[in-house]
């Protein structure tokens, strides 16, 4: 099996729109945007593809502070990912071409993925009760 080489470079949050515009001009394809909730920031990764080569851009967006510029000006396809960031994580964005304002996903709880990762197995499992007989 081949393990892909996946270069990762860090980009300032304010510069991401320019970065994406440069990628678009270079003929790259937007592959995905993913987000991980850290304790005090969101760790976003923008992936681009050109001729089967992957390039990742990492953005650390603080929870407070200036909203993240949208990349929908260069990649319209970004609107699904960015609305997802807004709905699931509560990342604030500016300049979205198509803003659903939190209505893209219909959720029980607001921004359910915003909490940072916790590793706990639920103590009480609502599973079968071991009662003798039957």
């Amino acid at each position: 099996m081949m393990i892909e080489n996946q270069p990762l470079e860090t980009v300032e949050p304010a510069k991401i729109a320019e970065y994406a515009a440069a990628k678009r001009a270079g003929g790259w394809r937007l592959v995905q945007i993913s987000c991980t909730s850290l304790a005090d920031a969101f760790e976003l990764t923008y992936s681009f593809d050109k001729d089967y080569a992957l390039q990742n851009a990492r953005v650390i967006q603080p929870r407070e502070g200036a909203p993240l510029p949208s990349i929908t000006a260069s990649y319209l396809a970004g609107f699904t990912y960015e609305n997802e960031l807004q709905d699931l994580f509560g990342v604030r964005l500016s300049g979205l071409a198509l803003d659903f304002k939190g209505q893209f996903y219909r959720l029980r709880a607001k921004t359910p993925m915003s909490e940072p990762h916790v590793t706990t197995k639920p103590a009480a499992k609502p599973a079968a009760n071991p009662t003798p007989g039957n």
């Binding site: 709880a109 359910p112 609502p126």
Partner: peptide
């Protein structure tokens, strides 16, 4: 999926 956040 019963442990996931969006499932009743």
């Amino acid at each position: 999926f019963r442990d996931t956040y969006n499932v009743l």
